[in-house]
Design a protein around this nucleic acid. Structure first.
Lengths: 148, 148
DNA sequence: TGTGAAAAGTTAAGAGA
DNA sequence: TCTCTTAACTTTTCACA
């Protein structure tokens, strides 16, 4: 990946609504040249979308938790992600190496909602769970960059 | 939070570059009315920013891991987040209830980079670590919505 | 891949209900 | 808090280097 594209990606991960004119100024290209590059990055799938970032507490979802998941029957076919995909409170689902099969990141309004969600996950996923409540979030979703 | 604002937030978390004209059409308001509402949501801090989403593998960061962290000295003042904040590979840092104090989400190019990063975290944070490698990501950063 | 220019579309700010 | 208006800006496309 080229330096110029890396710069463009870095700028857009920090401000996803930056105009092509500003982007161009920052990387030293004309508006239409950055425009073409951004379109190419989107087409090639390096940029997969744009999202507004939200204050989850302000929006009614103050409780975050990490839930690790182990299937009841280790011999059964593992289609847990498909069986959990319809649950909107599950924000992220990672398949992991280690004692657990999956780690889920969930967001809910209240402890009661968390309790109900855990029951729902156990039932829908035929799995046991181990829940770790997030107390505070020093930071989240920071822009990662390639070292070197 | 009002239904209209909730709709606007939901639409912008799915497409952070949607134009105010389109947003207005989707929620049944004039362009300038949605515009005013979005600006107010930004001012009140409900919308905290906009980011491009990136295919991390394509961008040179194919390895994701979750690292849980326990300080060497449980009696010492806990300023681990400040001591780790300068490490750009740490994308998220959650303070958690349970056996560990923090869980970190990290992204690196190679297993060698992960090894070096773990050593750096142990040293900078004066902590022991327990690393869980992410094998695949069925989904991540999905839009959470308030139930009901 | 890049540039610059022009048409089409969008944002922002103000006046009025 | 909404709509309408208008000026300023941005995006998109195109011909050409």
């Amino acid at each position: 990946m080229e330096t110029l594209d890396r710069q463009i990606v870095a700028l857009l991960t920090e401000d996803g609504r930056m105009s092509f004119a500003d982007l161009g100024r920052r990387v030293g290209l004309s508006t239409s040249a950055v425009h073409q590059r951004v379109k190419r990055l989107e087409e090639r799938g390096l940029i997969t979308g744009y999202r507004a970032e939200v204050d989850y507490a302000a929006v009614g979802l103050p409780l975050t938790a990490l839930i690790s998941v182990v299937p009841f029957d280790p011999a059964a076919e593992d289609d847990i992600p498909q069986r959990l995909a319809h649950i909107p409170q599950i924000v992220s689902c990672w398949s992991v190496a280690g004692d657990e099969n999956y780690v889920l990141l969930v967001r809910v309004p209240t402890p009661q909602d968390l309790e109900a969600l855990i029951a729902e996950i156990r039932e829908a996923g035929s799995c046991s769970t181990n829940t770790t409540v997030v107390l505070s979030t020093p930071w989240e979703g920071r822009t990662a960059s390639v070292p070197g």
